[in-house]
């Protein structure tokens, strides 16, 4: 059964299928497992951070700090692996703890001090970026045999595509994210907060726990994305991933999640990521276009999705008016 709330997701899905078909029609070689595998690998860190962003936006908030947190994580790992003999797995656990606590702290400030998420996470963005600079201003290479082991894990598909570990982790994060969002009480609480905080409180939703949890998830996933990014680039650099938070927000919105909160699906974000990756791949295949065209197309897509959302909101309002007849709104 198709419900009206599923419509943005359907539109995203249709956009992706149509775009992929168009690409395949123009460049038949794009329809290969190799392209698909690269799509997953190249966008792994962005996808993971976008899952966290989906939770934040579903609750009606925003998290501007994630790009900086990714950079911080990368630099932190690179420095700690260079200067100490600690095993990377232990470093991973440590950095995930730090980033999750960082997110939770921002959530606590947002909830208890009743500050707008925009400002709090903006401060978080500067903090995390600054911390990364303090650790090192240069790009620090990561050379550790464990990294090489992880990077060598892949599954070779029939068409020659290599599905690497980091793409798999992203898929796993999306599946877990979808389960948490749609099938747990915490997920329901996230939607409830996005639907209206005061009402949610009256309905017995634990606002504090939910808000702190949401930003902790976003921070933790940004940390995980940072680990993935360090595996992807084998380095940590404090100037990396500037503006990734905005890419993540774009993916979430293109995925059909309403920026004002309350409506959307984690699966939509997945296709949002794929659409953005596809545009990039197309430009690579074309070869003559400037890579900045990616931004232009994403901008246009974003704009049309915002228009779509507005249109759907209007449509529901008018439908409701006819449904209630002459009954007056108090």
């Amino acid at each position: 059964m198709i419900r009206s709330t599923h419509l943005p997701l359907m539109v995203t899905l249709a956009t992706f299928v149509l775009a992929f078909a168009l690409c395949g029609w123009q460049y038949p070689s794009m329809l290969s497992t190799r392209v698909v595998a690269n799509l997953l690998t190249d966008n792994a860190f962005l996808g993971i951070v976008a899952v966290g962003m989906t939770f934040v936006i579903l609750s009606g908030g925003i998290d501007l700090s994630v790009g900086s947190v990714i950079a911080f994580t990368g630099v932190f790992l690179a420095v700690i692996l260079r200067d100490t003999s600690i095993h990377p797995l232990a470093a991973f656990v440590l950095v995930l703890l730090i980033t999750t606590m960082f997110g939770a702290a921002m959530g606590a400030v947002i909830h208890f001090l009743e500050m707008p998420p925009f400002i709090v996470t903006l401060a978080g963005m500067f903090l995390a970026r600054g911390a990364a600079y303090v650790l090192s201003t240069d790009s620090v290479p990561i050379t550790h045999e464990f990294y090489d082991t992880l990077q060598d894990i892949y599954w070779k598909a029939p068409g020659g595509g290599r599905f690497r570990l980091i793409g798999g982790i992203m898929l796993l994060v999306f599946i877990c994210g979808a389960l948490v969002a749609h099938r747990t009480r915490f997920g329901q609480n996230v939607y409830a907060v996005g639907g209206g905080g005061p009402t949610a409180r009256l309905m017995g939703v634990p606002l504090a726990r939910t808000t702190v949890g949401i930003y902790a998830i976003s921070g933790g996933l940004a940390g995980l994305a940072g680990i993935i990014f360090s595996l992807y680039t084998s380095a940590g650099y404090s100037l990396a991933t500037v503006g990734v938070e905005l890419d993540a927000i774009a993916a979430v919105v293109i995925g059909g999640t309403l920026l004002s909160g309350g409506y959307g699906f984690v699966a939509g974000t997945f296709f949002g990521i794929l659409i953005m990756g596809l545009i990039q791949t197309y430009i690579v295949f074309d070869g003559t276009l400037s890579s900045w065209w990616t931004k232009i197309v994403i901008g246009a897509l974003l704009f049309s999705f915002i228009l779509l959302q507005k249109g759907l909101t209007w449509a529901t309002i008018t439908r409701k008016r006819t449904a209630t007849g002459s009954a007056q709104q108090s």
Binding site: G196, V205, Y263
Partner: peptide, 17 residues
């Protein structure tokens, strides 16, 4: 005082699903 974005069932069972 219910949440318009959730389904009827979700509203009915919020917190005790």
């Amino acid at each position: 005082n219910l949440l318009p974005n959730l389904t009827v069932a979700e509203n009915l069972f919020m917190g005790r699903q």
